[in-house]
Design a protein around this nucleic acid. Structure first.
Lengths: 188, 188
DNA sequence: CCTCTATGGAACATCAGTGTTCCACTGGGT
DNA sequence: ACCCAGTGGAACACTGATGTTCCATAGAGG
């Protein structure tokens, strides 16, 4: 019988470590493994049992990030409807990623690497070109800039959400409002 | 005769180290002092002669950041004209800060600390409230969010500028266009 | 009761970054 | 020629993070 990494005791501690890693590394990319194991309520020895290397831990975080990125993408149904609306749905879905956004933004995990394997990057690209074609996105903006606005706005939204001074629903509405205004094609 | 830290040989190497620190720390906040001294074409010993501590080096970087932030603010004349136009002038001025934007955004230097001493934070706040009062800024957005959009867009613009795939004038135009669209009050 | 699995802790060697000291070199100014 | 401020490099001790090994313990299940 092979060991299942997703269920049972093993799976639970593995997940605890992974979650703690995301949380701690988002707050401080240079955090020590000891800080991570503490946050996971686990001995440093145990952490090394699951992830022999710091590199392997980071790799696992990236893989997890890719998985959740893919989930968010499919939940957002990026291939449906007008391009602008797809991007706004992406905003809402990606905001759920929480600290992972910080990790992707600070470069602890690379958006390209972990977004590519699950076809996320491609889906986002497609939504942008579709939006430029169907006239819902501002033709004066380049695809690269469009996506940049999406990510940086997302990071801003998560920052506001995290420090908790603004109620979540207001963050969402300000985020969607801002992105829609910024990216929408001007009225004909 | 007291030593002048701004001119002569001393001033020049001091500036070289400071510039290198900004450049290197922007690329990697956890960079070693050796990397910084290498980038400054200076021995590690010399670096320690000017900044005994890593902390003192960072403090000096923050002070320099504050100074240049203040310069940019006064150049942008934040207290003149409609609020929205003031913010757009701030965008253009702040974009000149280059790698300092990365440092402020990644938290290596704190915007609050080094922006406060030169009255920059206050000037920006004032421009926002003025813009909300004179009807040029979108009243549905909070002052905190307005400033957040400014900073994150600025960071996006600098990122595009830095990797050099987009010509500078295009970055500036996309930046100003995006920020204006995002923050402007809707047409009555 | 015994066993097996998962764990935490102690101890250890290793390594990189830091901060310090000391010495030798250079170039400009007298 | 001399002096001297400025510099770079070598060497050192110290610290904190890392990765490893070994052992003791707790708990679920036979």
């Amino acid at each position: 019988m092979t060991v299942d990494l997703e269920t049972g005791t093993r799976g639970r501690t593995r997940k605890a470590i992974l979650d703690a890693a995301v949380r701690v590394l988002a707050a401080d990319p240079g955090a020590s493994l000891g800080q991570i194991s503490d946050a996971a309520d686990v001995g440093r020895t145990t952490l090394h049992r699951y992830f022999p290397d710091r590199a392997e831990l980071v790799a696992a975080v990236m893989q997890e990030a890719g998985r959740r990125l893919g989930d968010a993408a499919s939940r957002a149904r990026l291939d449906e409807g007008p391009g602008l609306d797809a991007l706004l749905r992406a905003c809402q879905a990606l905001l759920q990623l929480g600290d992972l956004l910080t990790l992707m933004f600070t470069g602890v995990v690379s958006i390209e690497t972990c977004g590519a394997e699950h076809g996320f990057a491609q889906a986002l690209d497609d939504a942008c070109t579709r939006g430029l074609a169907d006239g819902t996105l501002d033709p004066r903006l380049t695809p690269s800039w469009l996506q940049g606005v999406l990510w940086s706005s997302l990071y801003l939204g998560w920052s506001e959400l995290r420090d908790g001074t603004t109620p979540p629903h207001e963050v969402v509405s300000q985020l969607l409002l801002t992105v829609r205004k910024a990216l929408a094609a001007p009225a004909a």
